[in-house]
Design a protein around this nucleic acid. Sequence first.
DNA 1: TCGATTTGACCGTT
DNA 2: AACGGTCAAATCGA
Length: 360
Amino acid sequence: MEEETLSLIRHGCKLARDLESNLSNLSNQPIFLASSCDDIAKAFKTAMDRLHPHNPSSDLHLVFREPQQPPALDACVQGQEWIRTSYPQAVDLVQTRFIADRNPFDGRVLLPESRVSTVEGSARSKSGGETHAAEESDSGKNPAVQKLRRRKDGVETRYEATPRMGNTEIPPDDGYTWRKYGQKEILGSKFPRSYYRCTHKSFYGCNAKKQVQRLDDDPNTFQVTYYGVHTCHMSSTAPSSGSGGPPSITTTRPPSTSTSEVLQIQSSSTQPPTNYSSSSSSIPIPLSRWIFMGFEATPIPSRRNTTMAIGDGGGGGGAATRDGKETVECPVMDLADAMFNSGSSTSNNSMDSIFPSMHE
DNA sequence: TCGATTTGACCGTT
DNA sequence: AACGGTCAAATCGA
């Protein structure tokens, strides 16, 4: 087995172990719990895909199936109980966020109808007066929200809330690279609005732009408005990434059918941003993000070694400060990175009993 | 040296 | 005139 796969498994075990140890303290923090479950599921899913490359759409439950032998340790019982009670939700969240994070530009609702109805919810709109031809329900409770709004004039509005811990001042990776070209205080708004354009505007004449602003009444929510359509990814002459030119930004994402859309991202940080580093910040990929990328059915074009963006977001993602240091304060993400990079592989692992099937 | 970010200034619209 | 969007010089980091 590849060392990389083993590391992934160890990483997932560690995440789960840490979650277990802090479960009592986090019982009132559903967003953090969801985020933690999210990362755990991603880690194991990635590992599983590596173990079963021919079965990429494998059911996660196969990985976390209950053991045939009853566990002897309390931790094992607790772990299995967590799997029974929380894992399905975690998987659901992962799948939901996967779709939401991957398709911000696609005005079409990609979520199955049944799923949409369950994940809609907390994001709030600030853009009043719109005709919500494609608006979805607001009645949900799940913070992992993807909302779509389409105006009569073709402007599509989309809302998404992603549970993130720490400094989540940047929207998740939307798959494109952005360059910030302005920031302005907006009258009546407590937070400045940042202006971004496609990094490849100069090369391919891509006129896609976006504006990022944190909502006054909900600092945890970003409103990201997209203008224009990316034309860069359609360029047949787009050079491949490498020396001597911009990276290929060919993307598997279908081009937006709209000229504008709004994406709201709920973060967990109430800290007012000094700046909104776009998803195109030249920052390293956090491991957790890398795992997330590996979790994707459709790989994101490699851009990280150039001007790449993460999400972020990315998804997470990080906010690059002017001094080049990441300002992300994401316990789960950072912990994941620290643990993974530390190369630790402690054998004293209660998760060994929680996930006994992993030994098989 | 190059590319990205910051930020004050400029410009167009209302 | 006020406001929002964009420009571009200065700055910073890799």
